[in-house]
Design a protein around this nucleic acid. Structure first.
Lengths: 327, 327
DNA sequence: ATGATCACTGAAAACGTTTTCAGTCAGCTC
DNA sequence: GAGCTGACTGAAAACGTTTTCAGTGATCAT
């Protein structure tokens, strides 16, 4: 039924070893290589990757574990990762954890069984802390979020600086009661929160941070509650694109004009943030660069497993738009 | 180094066959199963999926080939597909073709080498036409776009009806010079165009359809050109979410108020379409359902390979918003 | 002419599982 | 007690490749 390397060998009148060498790299005379290629064409042979992977012990597979591919940030990063991977002749297995530690563990186990070459992972805080350096038998590159220093290579945003930039801008525009709503599951949200608090302190302002699940629904609820209180903030910073959308919704529901009654700023320069009127002030993350760098770190690590752990910190770009105009 | 099934067998004092049976389903006495499980825990054994796949000839892998995962429509569908797949104990290999026939062929070849169980595929028109029914040795389910009838299972939107609904609504609102910009690469865009033209005809109106690459940039350019012409349309229909965004941009650039100078409608109820002021009138596609149905069709096909080809046609939901208000 | 080197080739082992095949043993039926 | 059945078990044969190992013959330096 299925045509294997033996069939090709028979058709070409050579041994399977020669076929294998002719198709891969190996010393084969031009004449035989010709014959083999003809036989491949004639038989319609397609190598069986499972067999190849088993024998050569090189799966050429990398795992990509993110919270939710529907978050445009992860979508863009994963596209960059996939492009780089396929370019290098590797395939990608994508997994969504929904910020759930149990599923993270499940998928890490799966990666072991797949004998992946390496993994690119955006872990929750809990898992990042728990992951010891050498406990997995493949290298791991953390993206967007990092764990305890020195454990794994990582590529992250300079979150504190980015938050500070937003605060500085809002303060310069004359805002003082600046609140922040940050995700509760990731180290990144924590860093953004810390950066926000530090910057507020630097300006002699009282920080007011709240936390909720890093999605649109939770942020809409949290922001809605907050904005309905007495002494509600004049400006709000949200720690990712989904949450920013939730805040816009909440403001709409409460009929708070932006920036008239509420200034809004956040992370992730998604296309729609520019389309609103006024547009939203955001920190743009270099998404393609993050994905590409992650792959690059992974390849470097594979090449020299013992080199010191590297942490690539990329800067966000502050995109100023109407949502933070002077009140 | 790596612990294999032989190590477990030795530790448990049984044969590898028994270990295999204890871990999978097979007749094993409770006592031995216990021993094996203990040995697995003790050794930290993780099965090697490459070996398993090779021997059992069941890869438990499905391929998902889409144009671009960054298109929110495909993102949502792929998330649904992945959820269903992992639930059924299968992995997913994701590929982006960028509407390029060459890459489509490349990835289909890759799927053959992976010996995938099945493929879910959103092909360009060219490839859909060229794909003969039995030429691949795995079942294919087409999503979003379909090919020649009877060749492959598929799940698509009722595109003609959806387009017609938009036209009917615009006509009811008093618009007459209604233009359409449709993607140039997919059967789906063609169907949407046909539905648009038929509906215009039914209303005794002259259809005016143009085509461009189905992305935001191309649509912005095309719409921009058109809207700058004399006798520009009073209303525009765009054939997907990205193109709709392009049209919004073009209208902004030309300072055409929506719906004052231009009514806008399109496909894909992405979150941002509601956030604009006014919101955009769109056809919402049942994205999760599309993904789930595709997996379901695929499983059915695997169960009974010879059953007649099925085409699942889902209806879009018309979401009326301010962008198509009376002029 | 001899030995050494070189470039290529094929037979067979290996990769880590699952599955087949042939037992083995206990419990039953007659 | 002989023969059957049924439930379990282990040895060994796959699965389809790549890689090792041992040639083979040709070329080259001596």
């Amino acid at each position: 039924m299925s045509v294997g390397i033996r069939d090709v060998a028979r058709a070409a009148g050579v041994s399977t070893a020669t076929v294998s060498r002719a198709l891969g790299r190996g010393p084969v005379s031009d004449a035989l290589r010709e014959q083999v290629e003809a036989a491949v064409r004639a038989t319609g042979y397609r190598p069986n990757l499972s067999a190849r992977r088993l024998r050569s012990q090189a799966t050429q597979t990398i795992g990509l574990i993110v919270a939710d591919i529907r978050n445009p940030f992860f979508t863009a990063v994963s596209r960059a990762v996939e492009d780089a991977a396929y370019q290098a002749g590797m395939r990608v297995i994508l997994c969504n954890t929904d910020e759930d530690a149990e599923r993270e563990a499940l998928y890490l186990r799966l990666m072991q069984e797949e004998r992946v070459t390496g993994v690119i992972f955006a872990p929750t805080r809990a898992t990042a802390q728990a992951m010891r350096a050498g406990s997995l038998d493949f290298p791991v590159v953390l993206i967007d979020r990092s764990g305890p220093p020195g454990a794994h290579d990582s590529v992250v945003l300079d979150n504190a600086a980015a938050s500070a930039a937003l605060v500085d801008h809002l303060v310069a525009q004359g805002y003082a009661r600046i609140g922040g709503v940050f995700g509760s599951t990731s180290s990144t949200a924590q860093e953004r929160r810390a950066g926000y608090e530090a910057a507020m302190g630097r300006h002699g302002l009282e920080p007011a941070a709240r936390a909720c699940a890093p999605n649109a629904l939770a942020a809409e609820a949290e922001a809605g509650r907050w904005l309905a209180e007495d002494g509600r903030p004049e400006a709000l910073i949200l720690s990712n694109g989904l949450m920013l959308m939730g805040a816009v919704r909440a403001a709409r529901t409460l009929a708070l004009p932006i920036p008239g009654a509420l200034a809004l700023a956040g992370f992730d320069n998604e296309p729609w943030t520019e389309l609103l009127d006024p547009g939203l002030t955001v920190i743009e993350q270099p998404v393609a660069e993050i994905g590409a760098q992650a792959m690059s770190l992974l390849f470097d690590r594979l090449k020299s497993p013992d080199q010191p752990v590297r942490k690539v910190v990329l800067s966000g770009r502050t995109v100023l738009r109407g949502s933070t105009r002077k009140p």
